[in-house]
Design a protein around this nucleic acid. Structure first.
Length: 244
DNA sequence: TCTCCGTTTCCTGTTT
DNA sequence: AAAACAGGAAACGGAG
């Protein structure tokens, strides 16, 4: 479940930008950002190039299809008849309406949609969005939720990497998704990536793992007595498949 | 300026 | 033997 702070931050920041600006103007999205989608071509009128509020019914459909494919969601739990709507209607749905329509995937999809509304579809785009939005509006980008470069905590970084197969490249993998158990497959690569995020090229897995061990105290992580295996604790949120 | 929090860095010892 | 784990201690940097 999205915590209330994160949730409200998403919504409150969603419409900061001029709604008439193009998605590309807002987020500086380039073709490179879509490199992980091999089905994307220049000529495709793809939903990623349009702000969700301006999606057509077809774009909404494309987005749902994409989510099912990309995040391995069970399309059977989604009531597609409820999503025969355009982007504006989609964005105007309350969370409750959304959950009713999207079944067990609802919270996850709702989260993804809010994230896209704010940041674009992925982390690289969101980082650009962050900088770009700051430039456009003369505001700094302090806390925009889970993909924020500066305020993201280590456990959120790890969680987001697990939830972003296109970013992960085999560094982390779920051992038991339902229980929140995951494995660090490439420890030094993880440290390097965390170091990049924190602009610290001296980061090592040894130091990163020390930070992870502090999470045992706070219930963000729980101990798993296996090397390189961790488990999200009761105070971690946003990692569950149908409970974000 | 001060305090607090979340690390980061370093360390010694233990386990796999 | 190497890599990872455990956790104390101190320092650091950003936020409020």
């Amino acid at each position: 479940m999205l915590d209330s702070a994160t949730h409200s931050t998403f919504l409150s920041n969603t419409m900061v930008c001029d709604p008439l600006m193009s998605w590309t103007e807002l987020f500086g999205t380039t073709e490179d950002d879509y490199s992980s989608f091999d089905h994307q071509t220049d000529s495709d009128p793809f939903w990623t190039s349009i702000h969700p509020e301006y999606w057509s019914k077809h774009n909404v459909c494309e987005w749902l299809q994409f989510c099912c494919d990309q995040y391995k969601l069970d399309a059977n739990c989604i009531s597609f008849s409820h999503f025969n709507i355009n982007g504006l209607q989609l964005c105007n749905m309350t969370q409750e309406e959304f959950l009713d329509a999207a079944g067990t995937c609802g919270e996850y999809l709702y989260f993804i949609l809010q994230n896209i509304r704010m940041h674009g579809y992925s982390m690289p785009a969101s980082d650009k969005a962050c900088m770009k939005a700051g430039g456009i509006n003369g505001q700094e980008c302090h806390s925009h939720g889970r993909t924020n470069l500066q305020s993201s905590h280590l456990w959120e970084f790890v969680r987001d990497l697990l939830l972003s197969p296109e970013e992960n490249s085999g560094i982390l993998e779920w051992e038991d998704r339902g229980q929140g158990i995951f494995r660090v497959v490439k420890s030094e690569a993880l440290a390097k990536m965390w170091g990049q995020r924190k602009k610290n090229d001296r980061m090592t897995y040894e130091k990163l793992s020390r930070a992870l061990r502090y999470y045992y105290k706070t219930g963000i992580l729980e101990r798993v007595d296996r090397r390189l295996v961790y488990k999200f604790g009761k105070n971690a949120h946003g990692w569950q498949e149908n409970k974000i």
